[in-house]
Design a binder for these strands. Structure first.
Length: 284
DNA sequence: CAAGACTCCTGACGGC
DNA sequence: TGCCGTCAGGAGTCTT
């Protein structure tokens, strides 16, 4: 699903196609496309605006407009943002006609994605943790941040107010690279492992961006229409029952916080009592 | 503060 | 073959 690497790929590929272009018409289709405001005001505010930049914050994409306002969107599960010559009547939730005759489309099969117009990023976005690739998220930061909380690693890393941009796939992959079990408590992580986790997050995300993201189902495609390639490098995600590429033990899948969670029982040793907890969760 | 449940939505998939 | 139940998952909200 679109996480940081996928959104970064979208932004990089859409940017050269729309920067400098002016929106000559805007339409919104269906309910709940907009996180805030009315379709009428949204569309009226966009017509005539020139797009001056395209960027990413966490899993949000941001289009800067020449009047200083921002078009902010989230792809959630199945959203796509891309430039096309022809509309996609079935899935399109918002359509922006550009002055070169092409269309900037926001499509979304499952309709969880949202758009909004804002004057500042702070106005549009909830509280977000640091960007993993901006330098702030280093070993020292991670060690202090983990120690300051008492939460299971898996849901903590999914929490966007802790670290921005990670989703289910890259949390599982990062924990495996760091040798940390998803059910471990954050305050029990040794300092050395916290440093390893910071490194793991950065290296997994960088590798995934280089591969243009992950496509393991029919949903995520780059704006240019290609699947990503990082699914070929998954160490644990979706590999339950298959041997760990590092040690040969069979990858396991459990549910943590209502999320499918994949790990290697040998590379990521369980904390005390974790097996019992997982067992009880499955029974209830 | 932590954590679980629930909600939104629809294509894909397993079972019979 | 075809119908139907179940699942997946980001993030907000509500409850325990």
């Amino acid at each position: 699903m679109p996480e940081l690497p996928e959104v970064e790929t979208v932004v990089r590929q859409v940017r050269p196609q729309v920067v400098g272009r002016t929106i000559v018409a805007a339409q919104v289709f269906g309910r709940d496309v907009l996180a805030r405001g009315t379709p009428r005001a949204f569309c009226a505010a966009l017509v005539g605006r020139r797009i001056t930049a395209v960027r990413r914050r966490a899993k949000y994409f941001v289009l800067d407009l020449d009047d200083g306002r921002l078009l902010v969107g989230h792809l959630r599960m199945t959203g796509r943002l891309y430039v096309a010559r022809e509309p996609d009547p079935k899935r399109t939730r918002a359509r922006f006609d550009l002055d070169d005759g092409r269309l900037l489309l926001f499509t979304d099969v499952r309709k969880f994605g949202r758009l909004q117009l804002a004057r500042t990023l702070d106005e549009a976005l909830p509280a977000l943790g640091p960007e993993p690739l901006d330098g702030e998220l280093d070993g020292a930061w991670m060690a202090a941040a983990l120690a300051a909380r008492r939460r299971l690693l898996k849901p903590l890393l999914l929490d966007q107010s802790f670290v921005a941009g990670l989703g289910n796939i890259y949390v599982d992959e990062s924990l495996h690279r760091a040798g940390l079990h998803p059910l471990r408590s954050s305050d029990g992580v040794p300092r050395q492992r916290a440093f390893a986790l910071a490194d793991a997050i950065r290296s997994v995300l960088s590798a995934a961006i280089a591969a243009e993201g992950s496509s393991f189902d029919t949903f995520y495609r780059t704006p240019e229409g290609r699947p990503g390639a990082f699914q070929d490098e998954f160490a644990v995600y979706g590999r339950d029952g298959q041997p760990c590429r590092a040690c040969g033990a069979l990858i396991r899948r459990i549910v943590v916080g209502q999320r499918g969670t994949h790990f290697c029982p040998r590379c990521q040793p369980a904390p005390r009592g974790a097996a019992r907890k997982a067992h009880m969760r499955r029974r209830t």
